[in-house]
Computed example of a mutant assay.
Amino acid sequence: MKGTVMTRIHINASTPYDVVIEEGALQRITDYIKPLKPNCRVIIVSDSNVAPHYLDSVKANMEHAGYTVCDYVFPAGESSKNAHQLIDLVEYMAAQSLTRKDLLIALGGGVVGDMAGFAAATYLRGIDYVQVPTSLLAAVDSSVGGKTAVNLEAGKNLWGAFKQPILVLCDPTTLNTLPDMEWKNGCGEIIKYGFLDVPGLLTQLEHKPLIKHRDSVSAVIARCVQAKADIVEQDERESGVRALLNLGHTFGHGIEKASHFEVHHGYAVAIGMVLMAQGAVKHGELDAAALEKLKALIEAHDLPTTTTITKKEILAAAKHDKKSEGATIKIVVPTSYGHSELKVVTHEELATYLD
């Protein structure tokens, strides 16, 4: 019977917590929350895409278990992940008289998780929150690790905070309502993990591209979460090795911003990985055959490998990147098929990776 197979991955961070991956878990959400957070006021934060599918049932389950529940739903899309929407959310939380003992549930994809997580990090200097990722990208990446942020006019994720959730509850059946675009979006981040010393994942994706073999999604999510857990436990605040998780992001974020977020995150990361890999080949850091294998794997997941965004636009965005420190920037360079390394370069040197 579905729902009986459960994977639990422990994240040993400043606030330790579990990531639970189980089909049907959303129907039993209170079984997981009750031991961590007895009856209190709860705000469920979701967006206009996710709320029609799951908000009513989650709300009913929580109320049936004795929680007092309110909800906040905002327009779906990366363009909503901004300061104005965040402040509106926090004002609503205050109007509901939520206290430090109360709970926020982030029900949605990466945008919901980022926005709700940042609100939880800063409202009353911090309240507990639970991540319930309903997109593939959020399940494999953004719901885990405690990075929360919103976008500013100058760039992506520039205003944020580290705030670990008390639980991540991933129900893979929620992915069944995703459009194909969102599956591909998640695959961009999944392929990234394959280049962070998880080469077995690359082999699996080569033989069974996830976009066509969706029945293996629970195992792939678990593999990515474990890889991220291993990195976060070494470097929670991204002062060192955690920056490896930004493979493809330096150029990818520039593509997102220059396209006004019409190019989705996972798509932009896929392109960003190829651009960085092409630069690494030119710099003698990566074998050309590895680049071709990467491009073939990305194309097998129906993701792009090129962009019409100009070099100038991508580099302009990189100057506002969080990894930029004055005249230098920390980049992630693939150096073999399945392995990447951190490197600090000047912005002039970064430009040579796009020549």
Rank of each mutant, 00 (worst) to 15 (best):
K2R: 12
G3L: 06
T7M: 00
R8A: 01
R8W: 00
I11Q: 13
Y17E: 05
Y17I: 06
Q27D: 14
Y32D: 05
N39K: 09
V45M: 09
D47I: 03
V50Q: 10
V50E: 04
A51W: 02
H53Y: 15
L55R: 09
M62Q: 12
A65I: 08
V69M: 05
P75T: 14
S79L: 00
L86M: 03
V90Y: 02
A95R: 14
S97G: 01
D102G: 12
L107G: 05
G108K: 10
G109Q: 06
V111A: 12
G117D: 02
G117H: 03
A119H: 04
T122K: 07
L124M: 15
L124C: 10
I127Y: 05
V130H: 07
S135K: 01
A138W: 03
V150C: 06
N151Y: 05
L152K: 02
F162N: 04
L167V: 06
V168S: 04
N176H: 04
E182V: 00
G186W: 08
G186F: 07
C187Y: 09
K192H: 13
G194P: 11
V198P: 00
G200E: 13
K208H: 15
H213L: 03
S218P: 02
V220K: 05
V225A: 01
A229C: 09
G240S: 10
G240C: 02
L244Q: 05
L244S: 02
N246L: 11
H249R: 06
F251V: 09
H253I: 13
H264K: 02
G266A: 10
Y267R: 01
M273Q: 13
L275V: 09
M276T: 14
G279N: 11
A288M: 08
A290R: 11
E292K: 15
L297S: 08
E299N: 09
E299V: 10
I314H: 00
A317W: 04
K322C: 05
K323L: 08
S324E: 00
S324L: 01
V333S: 04
S336C: 09
H339A: 14
E341K: 14
E349I: 05
L350K: 03
Y353E: 12
L354Q: 02
L354W: 07
D355V: 11
